[in-house]
Amino acid sequence: MKFCDFIDADAISPELAAVDKESLIEEMVGVLVASGSVKADDKESIVRAIMNREELGSTGIGRGLAVPHTKHPSVDRLVGTVGISEEGVDFQSLDGEKVHLFFLLISPPDRPGDHLRALESVSRQLRDGTFCRFLKQSKTAKAIHQLLEEADNNQFVS
């Protein structure tokens, strides 16, 4: 699965403003509302579902990356958004470090395979230190989008 299959070009946030976990998730789901990927009416329910998932264990998996996610019946395809926080957010990560890079994913309840393949794409690309570093240093949505496209074209995977 490629990034362009689940990250909309207009759902990229180079400068996330939130300073705590819940407001960050609200901000990122808000980006998906603004881009038209999810309905405004579903926002609260999606945020709550993602927070419920975080209660079971943080999706901050170390190296400054978190992948907050949930299944939600309001979407009929996997939708995702990517965002960067220069300050970093305390996400109770496995390694205790602040998180700077976020991939938020919402998948239909009946499509576990898509969710797994999206996680595979994100983690396979981020295994590459260069891609991860470039992404964290990106200052504009355009620059991030370009990096995701380059990753989709296998320019980072060794």
Binding site: E120, V122, L126, R127
Partner: peptide, 12 residues
Amino acid sequence: SSPMMLMSLGAA
């Protein structure tokens, strides 16, 4: 020991 590495296998 790295969840990221484990997920990158995409083990369905």
